[in-house]
Amino acid sequence: MDNTAKKRWVSLYVENDVGVLAKISGLFSGKSYNLCSLTVGETEDPTVSRMTISLFGDDKTFEQIIKQLNRSVEVIKVLDFTDLPIHKKEILYIKLHSLRRDEMEDVFRSASVFGITVTDYEKGSLILECVKTESENDDVIKYYKKHFLSRMEAVRGGSVAIESVSRSDR
């Protein structure tokens, strides 16, 4: 891997058929491409699914990945989102339990500062819902891990992305 190696983003339109996800993920594993995350869901057209894929690679490998995706019979369109203005968010849930009263207060305060929603609550337990960029979610997890490592559970969904309409910041 040369010094052009970096994180890249691809948006993929594929046929909404059985086996297509296996085909695409198999392409990455079979050819030893470095896949970071992959999300998939149906679009406004139920026959089309859209994948958002993040991966790590240099220019040459990335060019090959794009070509390999394009030559797959099930792929309708490949968009390179790496340097485009896009909106990109990931959902993250954090469940905390066995919290003391003072800790609970601290969690509410931190959630408000970080802009996180408390979406479920029981005495001593709660669930945080966090829709942010991947790196912001990394920071959020880092913070709660520091304080509640043995009393937390985190699940994250991988990013979904769409091209901007007018905004160029992300």
């Binding site: 059985v18 086996g19 296996a22 085909k23 392409l27 079979g30 019979v73 099930e74």
Partner: peptide, 16 residues
């Protein structure tokens, strides 16, 4: 067999 052949053929499909 579709799963087995996915990476060694141009296209593989099950008629459902």
């Amino acid at each position: 067999i579709v799963g087995i052949c996915r990476s060694i053929c141009k296209y593989a499909v099950t008629v459902r």
